[in-house]
């Protein structure tokens, strides 16, 4: 699969030269095409407006035959994203049984952004937040906005160590020391999830 990098390079070129609205893609390490850093602007008219969210995209070695893993590096209050340092997302096309090799990352990223504009409480990762979203919308909005204020303002941090350092710097952060290790473990675990067959 020598041509595999060709596909990734092409997708990367497309995403950087004409990125989907509200999405910026960078490579943290120019020699590694399999790790992408994505900055997502919270969609206008949503509770996430004004926030900037970091996403880490990991492409498996046999991409595009297996689905990439996409996780939030920035904490977010959302029914479909785990409310922890891992930031796992529940997104239909990323599931092993739904993934098609012809699916483009640009489309996946747009789907993530669409998830911010329109959460799917019927398919939640955080059942409590989903209940709140359905039953007490005002309370949900308030919480989501306060998360944006706390975590999604200022420069986006992707790097695991940087997240930990920044948290320590701000002082008001909870679980600061453990942050780095926990996120690292999360990235590898979510990789495992996508790998497991149905």
């Amino acid at each position: 699969m020598a041509s595999q990098n060709k596909r990734i390079a092409k997708e990367l070129a497309e995403c950087t030269s004409s990125p989907p609205p509200g999405i910026t893609v960078t490579l943290p390490n120019d020699s590694d095409l399999h790790k992408w850093h994505v900055t997502l602007d919270g969609p206008e008219n949503s509770v996430y407006a004004g926030g900037r969210f970091g996403l880490v995209v990991s492409l498996p070695a046999d991409y595009p035959f297996r689905a990439p893993t996409v996780t939030f590096a920035t904490r977010i209050y959302h029914p479909n994203v785990t409310n922890d340092q891992l930031g796992n997302i529940c997104l239909g096309p990323l599931k092993a049984e739904n993934w098609k090799p012809s699916t483009r990352l640009a489309g996946v990223l747009e789907a993530v952004r669409a998830l911010l504009a329109e959460p799917q409480p019927d398919d939640p990762l955080e059942a409590r937040i989903a209940d709140e979203f359905r039953a007490e919308r005002q309370e949900f909005d308030k919480n989501a906005r306060s998360y944006v204020q706390r975590y999604a303002k200022g420069p986006v941090k992707f790097d695991v160590a940087a997240v930990g350092a920044a948290a320590a710097g701000e002082g008001g952060e909870d679980k600061k020391g453990a942050g780095g290790a926990a996120t690292a473990a999360g990235a590898s675990r979510s990789g495992g999830n996508t790998a497991s067959g149905p």
């Binding site: 092993a96 049984e97 098609k100 090799p101 012809s102 489309g107 067959g197 149905p198």
Partner: peptide, 15 residues
């Protein structure tokens, strides 16, 4: 890897 046989779809998205 996935042990799928009866329902392998065309690789195209949405097909």
């Amino acid at each position: 890897r996935e042990g799928e046989a009866a329902r392998i779809q065309c690789p195209s998205e949405g097909c």
